[in-house]
Simulated assay, not measured.
Amino acid sequence: MKVLWKGFSSYMVIGVVNALILWQIFFVLTVAADLRQAASNLAAFCVAASFSVYLHALYTFESKATVLGYLLFSTVMGVVSYGVGRIADLWQVQGLVTVTSFWLLNLIGEFFFFRFVVFRECES
């Protein structure tokens, strides 16, 4: 039970920091750099995902990420992040709605990718 709690608590803490990174980069790029939401969302995802994989490897899963799993995760969720931003650009949705929608999708996708693909070798 203690191992399960350690994994859950570290996953949540890293997830909160990941969200802060994602949101900050998204808003800096859309507001200050005047980029479209699609490009801003993709760039923010790339930075936040790299941060998450590194810290989850150290603290949550205590295992190295599989390269193929990381590439698959980055590709699939990168396409999703760009797609959400592109739809938001086309429909002229507010940035807060865009980043919140993608963050929720990313939270679910990241959990399943990390648990079953990226860090699958850490299962004993």
Rank of each mutant, 00 (worst) to 15 (best):
M1C: 03
M1V: 09
K2T: 10
K2V: 10
V3H: 14
V3R: 14
W5I: 15
K6C: 08
K6D: 10
G7Y: 09
F8T: 15
F8M: 15
F8R: 12
F8A: 15
S9V: 10
M12F: 06
V13F: 15
V13A: 05
V13Y: 13
I14Q: 04
G15Y: 13
V16R: 02
N18Y: 02
L20R: 08
I21D: 01
L22C: 02
L22N: 03
L22Q: 04
L22G: 01
L29A: 09
A33Q: 14
A33P: 13
Q37R: 12
Q37E: 15
A38R: 01
A39P: 01
S40E: 04
N41M: 10
N41P: 13
A43E: 09
A43G: 13
A44V: 03
A44Y: 01
C46L: 15
V47E: 00
A49D: 00
S50Q: 07
F51H: 14
F51L: 03
V53E: 04
V53A: 03
V53H: 05
L55D: 11
H56G: 12
H56D: 08
H56Y: 01
L58I: 10
T60Q: 02
F61V: 03
E62M: 08
E62K: 04
S63V: 03
S63A: 08
A65P: 00
T66V: 00
V67G: 02
V67D: 08
G69V: 00
Y70Q: 00
L71E: 03
L71F: 02
L72N: 11
L72D: 07
L72S: 14
F73I: 00
S74A: 15
S74I: 13
V76F: 01
G85F: 09
G85V: 06
G85W: 10
R86D: 02
R86L: 14
I87S: 05
I87H: 04
L90P: 12
V93A: 04
V93G: 00
Q94C: 09
Q94P: 01
G95R: 05
G95K: 05
G95Q: 08
L96R: 10
V97A: 04
V99D: 10
V99C: 06
V99M: 11
T100H: 07
S101P: 02
W103V: 08
W103H: 05
W103D: 10
L104D: 12
L104G: 06
L105C: 09
L105W: 01
L105V: 07
N106Y: 11
N106I: 06
L107A: 02
I108A: 14
I108F: 13
E110C: 11
E110N: 13
F111E: 05
F112T: 06
F112V: 07
F112H: 08
F112N: 07
F112I: 03
F114Y: 07
R115S: 09
R115K: 13
R115C: 05
F116A: 12
F116C: 12
V117R: 08
V118P: 00
V118G: 02
F119H: 06
E123T: 11
S124Y: 13
